[in-house]
């Protein structure tokens, strides 16, 4: 089963050819990692998948529908790289607003807060929270609708190892319950936590597959080395 199918995607942003004929498939019910150096086009690809990126060519199919189709708006959760929540409202107020847009019951707010371990600081204005806490509020918003596809742009940046571990196990729990996760990162130790990987460089996909396959293909000892081989050798 494939949750996302991208074919020959071309995107130009300003003067940059941000994606060049990108094709890939994201398996459903699994955690897929999107890795690549800064500026390689990860955010652009994720934006195209959630349907907010103007694209020049190619097709993006999400859960069987063209990316950005109205029915997908309650089935896909997206967390932008920078926290996108209202800084002057408390975490709880942010969640309550988005819950009303998604038409989900208010109890989900509590559950989402617990999932990101924010129940304690949920009453303070978000702008008074730490960077990692703000990122978690933004993540909690995406969890509210219990989406079938979760698209997360570097959700664990700035978080401590304990919290990172907890979030990754939460991601796997969601996948075990049937959700598909697509998570971008440029931290290699997170690649090891993914069921499958997509590696990008300069707007192209240079490798995709399961971590073991990438290790075997590059004959590297660990994913970090495999990455360096793939990125520099490509």
């Amino acid at each position: 089963m494939t949750a996302v199918r991208v074919r020959g995607l071309d995107v130009v942003r300003g003067s940059t050819h941000a994606l060049r004929s990108v094709s890939l498939e994201v398996p459903s019910g699994r955690v897929t990692g999107l890795l690549g150096p800064s500026g390689s086009g990860k955010t652009t690809l994720l934006r195209a998948i959630v349907g907010v990126q103007v694209v020049r060519g190619g097709t993006v199919e999400v859960l069987g529908l063209p990316a950005g189709s109205p029915p997908l708006r309650s089935r896909v959760g997206y967390v932008t790289q920078a926290p996108s929540v209202y800084g002057d409202l408390a975490a709880r107020e942010n969640l309550a607003y988005f819950a009303r847009i998604l038409r989900v019951p208010g109890e989900r707010v509590e559950r989402a807060l617990e999932l990101v371990d924010l129940s304690r600081s949920s009453r303070r204005p978000v702008r008074e929270l730490s960077g990692g806490e703000q990122a978690r509020v933004s993540l909690a918003v995406a969890l509210l609708g219990e989406p079938e596809l979760l698209v997360l742009d570097e959700p664990t940046v700035g978080l401590d190892p304990v919290l990172r571990r907890d979030l990754w196990s939460a991601f796997h729990r969601l996948a075990a319950e049937g959700a598909t996760l697509l998570v971008s990162s440029h931290v290699m130790d997170e690649a090891e936590r993914c069921d499958s990987l997509v590696l990008m460089r300069e707007g192209r996909v240079v490798a995709a597959g399961e971590p073991e396959a990438l290790l075997a293909r590059t004959r590297a000892e660990n994913l970090n080395d495999a990455f360096l081989v793939l990125v520099e050798g490509a």
Partner: peptide
């Protein structure tokens, strides 16, 4: 500028 509009545009609103 804070990205909340982008988020809203991905939601059923």
């Amino acid at each position: 500028t804070t990205g909340t509009l982008e988020r809203l545009m991905t939601l059923p609103l």
